[in-house]
């Protein structure tokens, strides 16, 4: 913490803060208005608020029902596993790629451009591409057949609609790694080289330079990007819908199944799953930020 500055400085800071708040107000209003209202309505619906149903009543049944729901319990484990793997995997891969790209003098610009190619591609397109490539009748399977490695589609390992979710994970990594890499590169570009040089002259070995100079510098940026990845993959629908199984399925998929269920009484459950999803993401983000904070400050 820095010591309090002189009076004028404080006033200027306050004025600047006010200006920022005013400028942000329209955007905040939209975010809070749209998302806040949606979330609020969702909360009400999950508690039984169904004005179109005569005789509705307030109840927490939708939540208590989730506890002994086989599909939801399986879903929670699956969702957590997939999003944590995707987040950690993309962070590690991105860090490695960023270090590599950063260390190459020539072609850095080209590599950075290549990394950006996939960014505007929607996840749905990525998922379909993965399906065309990795399914048992996909491109890889056909190549394996042509090479004489397999004699039928079923001989090729099941990577889509499989128990583990390889194709889902592959899509997440393919899409998110470049995103995190770009963020890491931006962080690295901010004068990490002189610091590394200094560390080297002071006798720091490569691992030490990485651990104590590079990592603390990029950790906040990579961490922020990873939070986005975690939040996204935890609530992702289209990727597991295309590449995953109908059961067990991630929370977003189960929520949609319940929302379109034949029985209207099930709808509060769908919304309750949505609320649980929102709470879980918030909690995960908090834990993740905490971890990163420790990683960034540990010297």
């Amino acid at each position: 913490m820095s010591a309090a500055g002189p009076d004028t400085e404080q006033r200027a800071a306050r004025r600047a803060g006010l200006r920022v708040a005013v400028l942000l107000a329209p955007a905040l209003l939209v975010v809070v208005g749209l998302f806040g209202t949606g979330l609020g309505l969702g909360l009400l619906q999950s508690l039984g608020y169904q004005p179109y149903l005569p005789g509705w009543s307030w109840t927490t049944d939708a939540y208590t029902g989730l506890l002994d729901d086989r599909a939801v319990r399986a879903s929670f484990v699956l969702t957590l596993r997939m999003s944590v793997l995707a987040t950690a995997g993309s962070a590690v891969l991105a860090l490695g790629i960023a270090m590599l790209v950063h260390s190459t003098r020539r072609g850095r610009r080209l590599l950075t451009a290549v990394l950006q190619v996939g960014l505007p591609v929607p996840h749905l397109v990525g998922a379909l591409a993965m399906s065309l490539m990795l399914s048992q009748s996909g491109l890889l399977s056909r190549l394996a057949y042509a090479a004489g490695l397999t004699s039928s589609p079923a001989d090729f390992p099941a990577l889509t609609q499989d128990r583990f979710g390889w194709a889902v994970l592959a899509e997440y990594l393919w899409k998110e790694t470049p995103f995190v890499t770009i963020v890491a590169l931006t962080a690295l570009a901010r004068g990490v080289a002189p610091l590394q040089d200094v560390a080297a002259t002071l006798g720091a070995r490569p691992w030490q330079r990485f651990r104590h100079v590079v990592l603390p510098l990029v950790a906040p940026a990579v961490g922020a990007a990873s939070v986005v990845v975690l939040a996204f993959t935890f609530g992702s629908y289209e990727v597991p819908a295309v590449l995953g199984r109908p059961y067990p399925a991630p929370l977003a998929v189960v929520a949609y199944q319940r929302f379109t269920d034949t029985d209207l009484a099930v709808r509060p459950q769908a919304v309750a799953i949505g609320v649980v999803l929102a709470v879980a993401v918030t909690a995960l983000v908090a834990v993740y930020l905490r971890l990163l904070d420790r990683l960034g400050t540990a010297r």
Binding site: D261, T262, D263, L264, A265
Partner: peptide, 9 residues
């Protein structure tokens, strides 16, 4: 693509 929900309603 049944949505019996409305029926329940």
């Amino acid at each position: 693509r049944t949505t019996w929900s409305v029926a329940a309603l």
